[in-house]
Design a protein around this nucleic acid. Structure first.
Lengths: 112, 112
DNA sequence: TTCAATAGTTCATATCTCCTGAACTATTAA
DNA sequence: TTAATAGTTCAGGAGATATGAACTATTGAA
């Protein structure tokens, strides 16, 4: 199993971030991860909204978020802990990401 | 030729906007359109960066931006005028879009 | 150790999406 | 009319995405 790749901040791009967040499942994952009290394993996302996702698909989604520079994944025992990298992205991308998550949260609130 | 569809603000979604902006050519188009003095026809985007795009591709890109609610297209004589809809999106999406364009512009500046 | 269980990754492939050349539509001007 | 210009639509192949099956890594128990 090849080691997980986390791009350095200098390699992260706006397009890459937007692409990663262009899938509804992935915005939802990042949004939930950004709630500090959220469980951070892949397993905990087996259901997103009302949709059940197979683990190979989830693994792909996490990989895309990871390689866009949005999250950091770290093995802890048998599971993978994922957390947003936003503290590392200060200034450069954090305002954009925050405004995206804010708009997404507000949209969700309105639908409910 | 079926009439161009412009979604009402109530139908515009965060995911839709992020998807539309997940293609480098499309962020670039929106970014340029957001400069008031930019030429607004499709024709004027036949080259994006160093890449030459065929008009069928461009037409698709404009359609996606339009149907995500990001631009309004209007026929004027033989050509199509496109302008961003951000004034209509006040509050709901404008901050997000602005922060995206800002991050994109700053990234471009840094590369140059 | 070995075995089983759990969590996730990787691979193969079927499906879906996107890009683009070619044909078509709409408008204008000669 | 006809020609020119600007864009749309369509069809096909090329490329991306989703997912079941097989694999890897870690832990805990026998």
């Amino acid at each position: 199993m090849r080691p997980l790749y986390h791009p350095p901040v200098s390699e992260i791009t706006v397009e890459g971030i937007l692409y990663a967040l262009s899938d509804p499942a992935r915005v939802e994952i990042l949004a939930q991860l950004s709630n500090a009290d959220c469980e951070q394993t892949c397993k905990s996302f087996a259901k997103i909204g009302s949709k059940k996702l197979p683990k190979s698909t989830l693994s792909q989604h996490f990989k895309i978020l990871r390689e866009a520079g949005l999250i950091r994944s770290e093995r802890v025992g048998v599971e993978m802990r994922n957390r947003p990298r936003c503290s590392e992205l200060k200034g450069k991308f954090a305002p954009m990401i925050e405004s995206i998550l804010k708009a997404y949260a507000s949209q969700k609130r309105q639908k409910a």
